[in-house]
């Protein structure tokens, strides 16, 4: 069994079997992460380039650690200090990197489809670490891993994704991933943040938080992209917080064993109250921890031999 693909561009292209292989491999990788000596030689001699056109702490660090624990050489390129600041196009940056023969390129880019464009240029494996409002597949995979770890299964579970659905690549990737694994997904947010035709993805849309979270196994809160407040999608942060912020009070509408997730970075007191973020059912830090194991699994599956090169 192997991932029969060169790149990972989105959850939409994966089959349930692919996802299961990635999650199972990640379980084995998590054991390595728990050792005193966190290093295995699987990717010795392989080169991983992290190419980030947007700010990121957890995703970039997570890929860097994952690569290093597998013994790959990891190079970080962030745009303010690179030739991108001199106006080099993504295509030319890609061709330049290609000439240095990396095995894996991890790309974060503000434009939807950027990872696919790069994947067509490079013979290296390209992993999409977030492209515009399109997809963020490794986030969805680590979310699925975390849910499966806590609940023991994915099939038949119900999840509510709450926040700015329209602009969220995390939401899009999770909807695809959860549905493929047999979960039921609903979304909730202000009407201005719910995409038109969301029902075509097979999810139910709610504009009332308490109705959305009643009876679900997982609540996934999205970061309120404060930079979007100027766009007039909601009148004020305080109002958004009152209607869609997850507080201890609002949480009473949910089941007592509900899991609470957030891809980070969190706006404390906006979409999630500190008591909930730090509370007993919050998996926010488990998500970060599992992100390394899931990314190790992907790096191994895409570049760890089997396929020629």
């Amino acid at each position: 069994m192997s991932l029969a693909r060169k790149d990972l561009l989105g959850m939409r292209e994966l089959t349930a079997e692919d996802i299961r292989l990635i999650l199972d491999t990640a379980e084995s990788m998590k054991e390595v992460a728990g050792r005193d000596i966190k290093k295995v030689p699987a990717l010795r001699g392989k080169t991983l380039i992290n190419l980030f056109y947007e700010p990121s702490t957890r995703t970039r660090t997570s890929f860097e650690i994952a690569g290093k624990w597998l013994s790959a050489d990891v190079i970080n390129v962030s745009t303010p200090s690179s030739s991108v600041a001199k106006g080099e196009s993504l295509k030319d940056t890609g061709l330049t990197l290609q000439a240095m023969h990396p095995d894996i390129v991890v790309l974060r880019h503000p434009t939807s489809g950027a990872a696919e464009l790069l994947a067509r240029q490079l013979s290296a494996a390209v992993i999409n670490a977030g492209d515009g409002a399109h997809e963020h597949p490794t986030q969805a995979l680590l979310d699925l891993f975390t849910i499966r770890e806590k609940k023991g299964r994915l099939e038949g579970l119900k999840a509510a994704i709450v926040g700015d659905i329209a602009h969220s690549r995390v939401a899009r990737s999770n909807i695809h991933g959860m549905q493929k694994m047999g979960m039921e997904v609903r979304v909730a947010g202000p009407r201005t943040m719910l995409p038109c035709f969301i029902d075509r993805l097979g999810v139910e849309a709610f504009t009332d938080l308490e109705r959305a979270i009643a009876d679900v196994d997982v609540i996934m809160m999205l970061r309120l992209q404060l930079e979007r407040q100027q766009a007039g999608l909601f009148p004020s942060i305080r109002e958004y917080s009152r209607l869609f912020g997850l507080s201890v009070e609002r949480l009473k509408a949910a089941r007592s064993d509900v899991l609470i997730m957030h891809p980070g970075p969190i706006n404390r007191g906006v979409e999630i109250s500190p008591e909930v973020a730090d509370g007993p059912y919050s998996l926010i830090l488990n998500q970060v921890e599992n992100g390394v194991a899931v990314r190790m699994a992907l790096l191994y599956l895409l570049a760890g031999g089997g396929q020629a090169g």
């Binding site: 192997s2 390595v32 030689p41 001699g45 031999g305 089997g306």
Partner: peptide, 15 residues
């Protein structure tokens, strides 16, 4: 993860 033939052509072993 410690095999010396990981980079060789062949089916990828499951970890």
């Amino acid at each position: 993860l410690y095999r010396d033939d990981l980079g060789k052509v062949g089916p990828q072993p499951v970890v």
